[in-house]
């Protein structure tokens, strides 16, 4: 590990005493970690005001490696935990970093409701199309016909299109990048750290050990090559057009960037209107 003047600038944001991490060679989660730390550096926000919340799974372990106040919660529930934390500490920047199985399958109901309420949290979803930690079961975004241990003859379920789900649920910012697009992914993370409301970034990531091996898609490097060749940047694209098929094109970009009052702003406005001077405002940090 590099020391002294050669020290990697991301190290001061990581719990180096917990290295080596648990992820496999070629896994995309490490790239997401790197992008997020660089986004913290670039955004120049006070790191002590940032908290990372994750659920369960390979990506769920992400919270344990960031040197910020971090919470590794239960399967599917980082969003409601983050809702509680953000409500208690509106001055803090609460980031949920977790996988698609955690956030969209078991936690799907929380995802749509937090987006609907426009809770001011940033949700970064690592989508590797499988439950990797437990050996490769089928997930909510697994492409049609993809093989999984619990879909041994190919998945016949229609997968979720995450940007469309996020937009229609009410998210104020929606983007999708792959781990090949590190600059854009980092930029999206900087964007959401500075953007109020429920922001959603999908980070499509390789899983060579589980998903790719089972679906004969090559190693981590081959998947990066695939991303380069099969991704199409289409900022502002209609999110209805973002379905992902086995071996098909992956449309990436920033799709939504809009303003809606956050949960606490809307609450504050409604209550002060209704209750007048009987209202004792909760210190939401909202400019009144």
């Amino acid at each position: 590990m590099s020391q002294g003047e050669h020290r990697n600038p991301v190290e001061s944001f990581l719990r180096m005493d917990r290295m080596p991490h648990i992820w496999c060679p070629g896994c995309g989660i490490g790239i997401v970690v790197n992008c997020f730390v660089r986004a913290l550096l670039k955004s120049k926000i006070d790191v002590d005001s940032v908290s990372v919340v994750s659920g369960i799974g390979c990506t769920g372990r992400i919270a344990g490696y960031f040197k910020v106040d971090s919470f590794h919660t239960t399967h599917g529930r980082p969003i409601p935990f983050a809702t509680g934390l953000k409500t208690a500490r509106p001055d803090m920047n609460i980031v949920v970093l977790s996988g698609e199985g955690d956030l969209i399958a078991i936690g799907g109901n929380h995802f749509i409701h937090a987006a609907r309420r426009n809770v001011d949290i940033k949700v970064i979803c690592v989508n590797n199309f499988t439950y990797a930690m437990t050996g490769g079961q089928v997930g909510p975004t697994a492409p049609l016909h993809s093989i999984a241990t619990t879909a041994p003859y190919g998945s016949h379920e229609r997968p979720f299109n995450l940007p469309f789900l996020a937009e229609s649920s009410g998210a104020t910012y929606v983007a999708r990048w792959t781990t090949y697009h590190v600059r854009q992914l980092t930029k999206a993370m900087v964007d959401v750290l500075n953007k109020p409301g429920f922001c959603f970034v999908e980070a499509i990531a390789p899983c060579p050990t589980i998903y790719q091996r089972r679906n004969r898609m090559g190693d981590g490097l081959e998947m990066m090559r695939f991303y380069r060749e099969h991704s199409r940047i289409a900022n502002g694209a209609d999110t209805r057009s973002l379905d992902i098929e086995m071996g098909g094109e992956i449309v990436v970009g920033k799709f939504i960037d809009r303003d809606r009052p956050t949960y606490l702003e809307a609450m504050d406005e409604e209550l002060s209107k209704r209750l007048g001077n009987r209202y004792v405002p909760y210190p939401t940090g909202v400019k009144r």
Partner: peptide, 25 residues
């Protein structure tokens, strides 16, 4: 009227973990 916040969550699972986020807050 006392500077508190109540949120009716989407279910009891969410409620029981949201309180814990707020407790750590």
């Amino acid at each position: 009227m006392v500077g508190g916040v109540f949120i009716q969550m989407e279910d009891e699972i969410a409620s029981s973990i949201a309180i814990q986020g707020a407790a750590w807050g």
